[in-house]
Structures are given as C-alpha cells and as structure tokens.
Design a binder for these strands. Structure first.
Lengths: 337, 337
DNA sequence: TTGAAAGCGCTAACAC
DNA sequence: GTGTTAGCGCTTTCAA
C-alpha cells in the first residue's frame, strides 16, 4: 500500500538545483521558446540518470498536449490458450512505435470495460486490434482520436490494415486446382466467433470456386459442425479431394478426423489452412498454409497511425496486405490423377 | 490529439448539483465519517449513469490510499505466436480479482522498461508472472508492495504460486514405468529459455529416475539440441523406449522426428509432455500430457494476494499446485513387452 | 535562460 | 450531511 518509491520530477529538480519546469523542458527536449545553458542541461540529465528517473507517462497525460502514448485497444483477455498471429503483429507494432519515440499503453483490464473504449487518459492515438465490425469501434471513432484498425473492418474516420483474404483464397484454390483437384471443400471453424474473417474467407471461397468454374462443396457455410463431420460429409458425400480450413486449429482437427476415417493426407485428401503459425510446419504431415503477414500488419499499423498523428489533416489510409502460400506436405495431387 | 470526451467527476458533480467530494464519496461507497441523504445519493448515481461516467483509475491512484488496482507485471511482449498456459492463468486471475472489486492494470509496454518494475502509479498489489528467478523481482520486492509470483520462484517478501514439477515428473516416470518402460529419456526444449522450469523439470527427471532405480538417459541436460537429434540419440544410441518432453512444442517436434526416423508412436517409442494445451489432444497420436493447473494458478494467485492486501500483517503464503496426468494415445507399453 | 503558478481528475483531511 | 481545499506528478502558460 506504500507509495512506490520511484523518484519524482521534484527530486530531480532538487538534486540538480533547478525548477521542475526546467527539468521537464530539458528531459522533453523542448525547443519552442526555450533554451538551456549547456551546464544546466548536463546537471539535469545527470541527476535524472543518477536517480534513474522515469516520468510517469499517465500522469504526464493529465496535462500534456502530446503524450507519446498510443493506446492498444481490444485486449480484453489474455487469450484462451489458443494463440493467433495478432500477438506477432502487436510485437512488431510496439517496436516500431518505440523506435519513433512512442510507448504503447494497454488499457486497464476488466471484464466490465467495453473492449474498444478509448482510454480515460490522454493518448496521441489508438490501435484497435481484431475488431469484429465497425460498430464495435463507434465510441473510438466518435472520440476524435486518430486510430487504426488492425485485422478488422475500418471505422468511418480511421485508417486500417487488413489482409487480402480474397486474393489469398483465390491463390489457395488455384494451388489445389493446379495440383488437379476439382472438388475442393472449405472447413469453417468448429466454434462460432464474431470476427469478420469468418464471413470473409467463407464468401471468398464461394467466389473463388465460382470464378474457376467449380462448385462449392455444400457445408462450407454451415457453422458449429465438428471437423470430423465436415470432413466426412465433404469427402464421403460430396467427393471432395481437398479441404481449405479456416485456420490452423481446424486444420489440425481435420488431420485427426482424416486419420479416424482412414483417409491418408495428402494421398487421399489434401488439407491446407489459413494462418501459418507453429506447429503447422512440425506436424505430420506438415501443413500447407496461406500465411498471414502478421508482422507487416503491425508495422503498417504503426506507420499509418504515425502518418495520422503527425499530419492530422491527412486522409486515413487503408492498406490491404497480401497473404503468402507456404507449400508443405499436406497438399498433393488427388488420388485419381 | 483532442482530449477524449469521457466525462469527468466535475461534470457529474455539476449535473447532480453536489460537490466533487460528494460524488467521489457516493461512488466509492464511503462509510467512514460519511453518510448521504438517499435523495442525494440517487441523484449522483443517476447523473453518473446518464453521463456514463467512469473514474480514471490511474488519476485516482495519484492521491487515493486504496486504488483497487493490481499491477500485472512480466508482460513485456504479446507472445511469439506460440501458446502458453500462462494466459489461462492470467484470465482466471483477472476474473477473480474483478469479482473482489479490483481491476488489473498492465504496465505501459516498452522494450526499455524493466520487466518486473513496479508501476509508477499507486497500486494495491502486484502479480509477477513467469519470473525466471528471484533476482528479477528485486525492485518489486524492495518496493514494499504486496505481491505474488506466479509460476516463478518467490521473492523474499512475496507470496508465490508454483507448480509441483517434482511430483509431476515422478508421476510421469511412474506412468511410463508401469507401462513397462525401463529406458526413459527426457527431451529439453530446442531453444534456451531462462525460466526456472527448465532446470526444475530436468533435475526432477534425474531424481525421479534415480528414485526408481533407473538410469537417466544421457543428453537430458544438453541444451540447444534439436528434437530430432535428441530422439535419435535417445532411441538409437541408448535404447530409450519413451521420452518425456519439456513441453508440448518439443513433443510435437519429437512426433515428427519419430516419423522421420520411421519410429511409430507409441508402438516403437512413447512420447509424453508437460503442459496440456491445444492441440495436444487433437494430434495423431494424441499426446499424453502432464497437465499444468493453469486456471487454478491464477485463482490461487489472486487469493494469496488478496490475503496480503486485506491483512497486511499476515505472512505471505506459498502454494504449490499438483499437476495432473492426462493419458492419451502417445504412450503405450514398450515394443518388447 | 529560468522560475512560479495554474491546472489536469481525483481523493482525503478538515471545515461547518 | 456536505462543501472547501490541498495535493498527488507532471506540463505549460505567464512573468521575469
């Protein structure tokens, strides 16, 4: 309950024999209407270093115009033991922002807090990750804060970084078609989720199949079915020789379902998935995957946000990043070729 | 850059026609030296509700004695795309604290920030997750803050929740021994990490083998070797018929190594691992695992911390939670039985 | 080139 | 019962 003993700006001021204002101005490198004698600056910097002084970024935000704080929104829990690529994006993002002199602040975590509510302290911008729809970020959008959505639909006034699931799906279908497959199924996740990739990939599949003159295998739009049922229906009832899975987790279940059904992968049926995360490459057979550009998403998000905060009048940009086909063991020509 | 428009306590005060203090006292349910007319209380609550007022928890911590904030320390990045169980612990912890009226606050994230530095705003307690050693939490320990370490060694003045790797390892060896195995290897992770489980499990393995009169298979203490090399050496050079893996990730690589070496699991070699996380149960073969009590760790951590904060003179407690054997397909009697 | 003082949102000690 | 005021750590006017 005791006050954390980290040094305050007053202590630095005392130690260096100047006022708090001067300390603040020196440490923040103020140029406007301000200059210091070199000796003073050095004394201040020395005192700060000796005390290991670090300003409290949130207190600073009480009064400062610019805070160098970027809020990371959308983190309402720590994951469910199932990890997605978004962590990789968040890491890349953090490092990029840091390089530009910003810090990332994560909202206080509480089940009661709305997921994308702008923070209650002042920040220079916000990143909304994995928002399901545009409505979810309504409050953020109306706050006037500059923001970017990452891997979710953009809001009216924000920039966005998304992933080109359309092209990715087309490339996936193309890959399988080139191998000789003519009956290609799509496996939605076993469990509902609200992320828009759920619809995006499903619809992209239907479109891509249509484009190349193949019929979508029934069941592709059926949610809540087990991987086992999806695979059995696709292969046994509809003659599918390949399955594109919504993500790696469902693909792993498909591999197991195949084993149970005495189907060899890829000999009897090819399996591939979106999102190339561990352990995709280590499975037997290793999984062909449409890799998502996780790190690039983070970097782009940081870049787009900085554009906005540093040039407030610029129009928010929308970037769509390509996915990348990683061919491994789980896809091969169909049995009858 | 514009100030987020979230309402301040002054606005609530204006709207309800009372002073800020009264608003504060009503909303914080003060009892000591304070009572309100019911009409006033209702007006305040109504105004707060209408404005959707939420106090800024960090600003509150500037002056409040008690903040109802618990700091979560140790989160320096968002993960590496590889799942861990600690997220499950953190979730359980958050919900438990929330139920008791606390909120969790995550430090501002920055690569420059020391991992376990106590926050620079006032909190009622702290949780340090996955600390590697006691030294890492030195600053925290000296701060006088009440804290718990979760899944890491305790500090001199803090409570701790750990996992009984010793008993777990013994149970793993017992399981395999009961199946008939006499030559049981241990596979350390491919990549170095600093977490103390690295030594704990390795040493526990050596001890457990010793206790039942079996010889530890050489290589168990060799870090940085690939799963493939570990398995080949254990099976080919030393006749191992079973391998206990440090975690699920290395176990998955062992499965692949086995396939490459034309070893069937579990027919030729049994594989099991610590940490039962997805996709352990979905692999082919599904992995026998020593499950870690992730959620319980979180709950216990919250409980131990609350004990400390609510009864500051009580001695910090140390809880060690049991692991649980989950038998699946990847372990079976050795080939020659 | 620097300091004093006000103020950010909130709580707590002290009035009345 | 309720208001007034000081102060938490920091930045930013305004003065000098």
């Amino acid at each position: 309950m005791s006050r954390p003993s980290s040094p305050s700006i007053s202590q630095v001021a005392n130690r260096s024999g100047v006022s708090k204002s001067t300390v603040s101005r020196v440490l923040n490198n103020h140029q406007h209407n301000f200059s210091v004698k070199d000796a003073t600056r050095r004394r201040v910097l020395a005192a700060a270093a000796e005390l290991n002084y670090r300003p409290n970024p949130i207190v600073r935000s009480l009064s400062a115009k610019r805070t160098n704080l970027i809020a990371l929104l959308g983190l309402t829990d720590f994951g469910s033991g199932i990890r997605g690529g978004i962590e990789l994006a968040a890491n890349a993002l953090m490092h990029r922002l840091y390089a530009d002199g910003y810090e990332l602040c994560v909202n206080v975590l509480s089940p009661r807090e709305p997921a994308f509510a702008p923070p209650r302290w002042r920040v220079d911008g916000a990143i909304a990750i994995n928002n399901h729809d545009a409505q979810q970020i309504d409050a953020l959008d109306r706050s006037g804060l500059k923001y970017v959505t990452v891997n979710g639909p953009p809001g009216p006034h924000g920039a966005s970084v998304t992933v080109d699931d359309d092209a990715g799906t087309r490339a996936a279908v193309h890959h399988l078609r080139t191998l000789g497959h003519r009956c290609i199924a799509y496996a939605p996740p076993e469990e509902y989720n609200l992320h828009d990739s759920l619809h995006r990939r499903r619809d992209a599949y239907a479109r891509a199949m249509d484009e190349v003159g193949l019929a979508a295998v029934p069941g592709y739009d059926q949610l809540g079915r087990s991987a086992f049922d999806t695979l059995r229906s696709a292969v046994r009832d509809h003659g599918a020789t390949a399955v594109i899975a919504y993500h790696d987790q469902i693909a792993i279940k498909l591999l197991r379902a195949a084993a149970t059904l005495n189907l060899r992968v890829p000999h009897d049926v090819s399996v591939m998935c979106f999102n190339d995360l561990p352990p995709c490459g280590d499975l037997v057979p290793s999984l062909t995957a449409m890799a998502l550009p996780n790190e690039q998403m983070g970097e782009q998000a940081a870049a787009l946000l900085l554009e906005q905060t540093e040039n407030p009048s610029s129009d928010p940009r929308h970037v769509k990043l390509p996915e990348r086909l990683v061919i491994r063991e789980s896809t091969a020509p169909p049995p009858n070729v």
